[in-house]
Nucleic acid binder design. Structure first.
Lengths: 184, 184
DNA sequence: ACTCAAGGTTCAATGAACGAACCCACAGTG
DNA sequence: CACTGTGGGTTCGTTCATTGAACCTTGAGT
């Protein structure tokens, strides 16, 4: 009967012969897809992920490391002194956009929530279809050409700076200005 | 400063104003998407999920109950005596097909794995595109018209009856014959 | 009366997530 | 030089979730 060698628990969906299961081993853990979503929104720095997600620091560090190891984010030093790091989404992350788009639409449509954000084709303003295509232009919109347009359902005065920056229309991947701790 | 009332841990991505986060509250837990995948494959019975997924019984019971409560599966008594239950995917489950399809493709393409299964338009045999459309017929293929066609990478002699049935081409949603415990 | 099958529940052990506290390197300020 | 602030982490005790083995229940078959 040759028992499978006990590989304990972990991220593995042991016996599955299925690329969905393989994908979930990589991005299926708690928080992971939200980290990737934020990376596509333009979040790049540890502290910005932290405040925008409300994720425990240790978990964030673990996820960033795992995503870097999987080639989904790239860790870069953006200044030497003091040493500062950023995490930039790779093509692997961009390739997840259709999945994230369709998942978000599923959530809103099936549980009829208020429209929080419109995703539009920046060239023509048309709202994207189910998987991120532009129905008017009949093409899959490249991620940098997706416009994130705030909808009526959003809190007009959020606590963290990332959410505040997301109250203005902006493109995916466009990095955030790290506000120089000014005013108030 | 009005702390948010501590809702402990749980399935909530507390502060997120985002339909992706809402969706993940529903289908983001470990095993959940694989249960839905199996339901789309045609798995309907507790024991079939159990052996095909290799999931702990308690977790399976919890997931089936949660998915039923969310209207993603429907629990039905398919015979009265002895009382037997089945879990049938609803439209909400079918609406997740593009998400699952794109997730599976992402996994295979980004980590260049062997092709395990082809998903084809049953009417014309063309392999589906990124999100479940037929490139030839230029339409989003309805879930019941998707043909699941085993590829070269599959184990030719799997242990559980569901995997064995999946070695033959079959449509999504088509229920499995529960083999009457014959032979051997 | 015994056995078998489906569809579960219970429970102790293990692992992961949480959150508060701490650490370090450096820059700027007085 | 001491002091404070910021970015990017690590450590650690507590709580929660997952695991796997054992057990339970209803009814059929023999």
């Amino acid at each position: 009967m040759a028992k499978v060698v006990g590989m304990a628990l972990g991220k593995d969906y042991a016996t599955q012969e299925c690329s969905i299961a393989r994908a979930l081993e990589v991005v299926g853990e708690r928080w992971t897809l939200l980290v990737i979503r934020d990376a596509l929104y333009g979040v790049r720095r540890y502290n910005d992920f932290l405040v925008h997600l409300g994720i425990p620091r240790a978990v964030l560090a673990a996820r960033l490391q795992a995503l870097t190891a999987e080639g989904i984010l790239e860790k870069r030093r953006y200044q030497e002194s003091p040493p500062r790091e950023e995490y930039v989404p790779t093509d692997r992350a961009l390739a997840l956009w259709p999945t994230l788009r369709s998942l978000g639409r599923w959530g809103r449509e099936q549980f009829d929530e208020p429209q929080l954000r419109y995703f539009r084709h920046a060239d023509c303003g048309t709202e994207l279809g189910l998987y991120g295509e532009c129905p008017r232009c009949a093409l899959v919109v490249p991620v940098p050409d997706v416009l994130v347009d705030p909808g009526p359902g959003l809190d007009p005065n959020p606590a963290d700076p990332i959410s505040r920056a997301l109250l203005k229309p902006r493109r995916l991947l466009q990095p955030f200005e790290s506000e120089p701790a000014a005013g108030q």
